[in-house]
Design a protein around this nucleic acid. Structure first.
Length: 482
DNA sequence: TTTTGAGTTGTTCGA
DNA sequence: GTCGAACAACTCAAA
């Protein structure tokens, strides 16, 4: 009599290598059922944004192809996780279920309930750590509390010892021959059609594990050298662009950690340290999310609950569409819209602009990023928005208000990033491109620009907006002074 | 318990 | 053009 199969429930871990759940299932010798569930969003689960849905489609196709090359396939099902799991178990006679943990409150609630349900029916469940360097609760202050400042968090994280070795991709997976039905990926409508706003995405991205490994390898032989400085330059290919791959678990931070160390040699170079600190920020964001599950909705610092946000639909729309009149801001928002991604330096600038220049609630920006970023991450996105807004853990100080012109001059000194994404400004010389409203009329005319027609006037005046933000922030600074 | 040093990413102003 | 100081005070984490 053949062995009962094991189910591997794939979630945000769409890879075969360094996949603890898959490795355990493979090691059991049981026939393996690889399952992906398009979950009905539970009460506290966040439906995927549109750009992330596009990525998911590609990633699921890639995973299915990789499994097929091993005589396996990915079973796709829709519904509530508990119902889908019950149905698959009933149809297959599976006796064990493996998955890698998730850390958002909604996901934890679903997993905890399901685990109890299955245990009550005699189904063994193993939930394993696979998507972080360390579990969020492992890092603690000396007093045993969650950490709220990045630097001590990261030091404590590193004091906990070596990061484990990545697991190899299973060499073989015994197939389950019972014939399980799978839904058709196309029927999930993950990809846009009318209009197909993602038509430019495939040129920029290759979703899937192979694409992730290619991106990492290219980064390690290329941009890692000089990363500490060049990473701030949106006009250059100087970042790893691994974020969406990490978001969907096509590559694990453990793999990145190990490969980066090997590529950089054993010495802790500045570039390597800087790069790994970015992985550290992801660890910190998940640490915060785990201990503060409402991160995407509630100010980490309660005094921001009284902040005088403005309701300004027109300004919000201008920001979303990249029509604020500030070239660097507009370039970033259009890069986001057209490719599903934005350079990190520019993310800070556009976020600071929305929150401080426009005084629009960070949650509005967070939601827009959630919908438009292919790397929209349940922990990174809210943690980063709160950091910029000043309402977060270890947040930027209130007086740190980015000047979009100055940031442009510093980090896009030739204006090439702006030219790439705001083509109507392309003919402007670099001295004018970050502040076209200050350019002499003949310069604008020569570049074919009529302010207010071919490119907008600034939606707000920088100096006035800056003062207004400082005043607003002063309102919540000292509660006793009110 | 108290004290002490530190805290991702900036800007502006005046010398 | 370049440089240092001011911008606030508060909270965190560890000694």
């Amino acid at each position: 009599m053949s062995q009962a199969p094991a189910i591997v429930w794939f979630r945000d871990d769409l890879r075969l290598a360094d996949h603890p759940a898959l490795a355990r299932a493979a090691a059991s010798g049981a026939p393996v059922i690889c399952l992906y569930i398009r979950e009905d969003p539970g009460q506290r689960q966040r439906p995927l944004g549109a750009a992330a849905r596009w990525w998911l489609a590609g990633s699921l196709r890639a995973l299915d192809e990789a499994l097929r090359s091993m005589g396996q396939r990915l079973i796709l099902r829709s519904g509530a996780a508990s119902e889908v799991m019950a149905a698959v178990i009933a149809a297959s006679g599976a006796r064990t279920v493996f998955w890698n943990r998730r850390y958002d409150a909604g996901g934890i609630a679903v997993d905890t309930a399901l685990k109890a349900e299955l245990a009550a029916r005699g189904i063994a469940v193993a939930s394993l750590p696979g998507n972080l360097l360390r579990e969020p609760w492992e890092v603690k202050s000396g007093a045993g509390d969650p950490m709220k400042v990045f630097s001590p968090f990261w030091r404590a994280h590193q004091r906990l010892g070596d990061i484990r070795e990545p697991l190899r991709r299973p060499t073989a997976l015994a197939p389950f021959n019972g014939g399980l039905a799978s839904e058709d990926l196309a029927s999930w409508d993950l990809e846009p059609t009318k209009p197909n706003w993602a038509s430019g995405f495939p040129e920029a991205w290759t979703p899937g594990e192979a694409g992730a490994q290619t991106a990492l390898a290219a980064f390690l032989v290329g941009a890692l050298g000089g990363y500490a400085e060049a990473r701030d330059r949106p006009d250059r290919p100087s970042t790893s662009r691994l974020s969406p791959h990490l978001r969907f678990g096509e590559i694990s931070p453990v793999q990145i950690w190990r490969q980066a160390h090997m590529a950089a040699g054993l010495d802790g170079s500045r570039d390597l340290t800087k790069f790994l600190a970015e992985i550290g920020w992801r660890e910190f964001a998940y640490h915060l999310l785990f201990h503060f599950p409402d991160l995407a909705e509630t100010n980490f610092q309660p005094r921001f609950d009284g902040f005088p946000w403005r309701d300004d639909a027109a300004a919000l729309a201008a920001w979303r569409r990249g029509r604020t009149g500030y070239p660097l801001v507009d370039a970033g928002m259009r890069q986001l819209w057209q490719t599903g991604w934005m350079h990190n330096r520019v993310r800070m600038v556009v976020a600071s602009f929305l929150v401080k220049h426009l005084l629009i609630d960070w949650r509005a920006g967070e939601r827009w990023f959630w919908d438009t970023l292919v790397d929209a991450d349940v922990a990174n996105n809210p943690a980063s928005w709160q950091w910029v807004a000043g309402s977060g853990a270890d947040a930027a100080p209130y007086f740190r208000i980015f000047n979009p012109m100055l940031q442009g001059q510093k980090f896009d000194p030739h204006g090439n990033y702006v030219r790439r994404w705001v083509p109507e400004l392309a003919a402007l010389p670099k001295d004018a491109i970050h502040a076209p409203w200050e350019a002499p009329e003949p310069v604008l005319a020569k570049a074919g620009i009529r302010l207010g027609e071919t490119y907008p006037h600034p939606v707000v005046d920088h100096d006035a907006a800056r003062r207004r933000a400082l005043d607003a922030l002063a309102e919540i600074r000292d509660p006793s002074a009110a």
